[in-house]
């Protein structure tokens, strides 16, 4: 069974650092990291303009549908996707097979630059995520914070918000 993704402090900062450098290096507007199941991991840039939760779900769906299309024509995977708009463009790459890196950019930069810089960032992120996944596999993850106490409080909140 594939384990959930657990991200700890140290890894999170190095991930954020990597996507910040990508944002600055490309003059892109927004960079987002999303897991393939559609959950936002982190983002940088002017995210106030978009609904990141919706964006995450739809990109994951987009990637999922596209990778099925790939297998239908005998490709293992399309590792990148590009959607071109009139003003805004979207460049999407797969990281370590489980994470989606999305770059939103306009005509202040070029696809060429985005593509080249993204490739470097993907390689960097792959290293971090592979380490992170192996930590999870080795069971080195401390889940102590999410304990029975957490369960009790959560249950109360569920009753309160969904009508007890």
């Amino acid at each position: 069974m594939q384990e959930g993704i657990n991200i700890f402090e140290q890894d999170f900062w190095s991930i954020n650092d990597a996507i910040n450098r990508l944002l600055q290096g490309t003059h892109a507007k927004i960079v987002l990291l999303i897991d393939r199941e559609g959950q936002m991991i982190t983002s940088t840039g002017d995210t106030s303009r978009i609904d990141t939760s919706s964006f995450a779900t739809l990109s994951a769906a987009d990637f999922a549908a596209t990778s099925q299309l790939a297998s239908l024509i005998g490709e293992r995977e399309f590792s990148t996707l590009f959607h071109q708009g009139e003003k805004e463009n979207l460049y999407v790459s797969l990281v370590a097979n489980r994470i989606i890196l999305a770059v939103i950019f306009d005509n202040r930069t070029t696809l060429g630059l985005v593509r080249v810089k993204t490739r470097t960032t993907v390689a960097e992120l792959e290293k971090t995520f592979r380490m992170l996944f192996s930590k999870v596999q080795q069971g080195a993850v401390a889940r102590k914070e999410i304990d029975a106490d957490f369960g009790r409080i959560a249950e109360k909140e569920i009753d309160r918000l969904f009508g007890g």
Partner: peptide, 12 residues
């Protein structure tokens, strides 16, 4: 499986 981010403290 659930995504638990200990740094940004999120559980999805």
């Amino acid at each position: 499986m659930a995504l638990i981010n200990y740094a940004s403290r999120e559980i999805n």
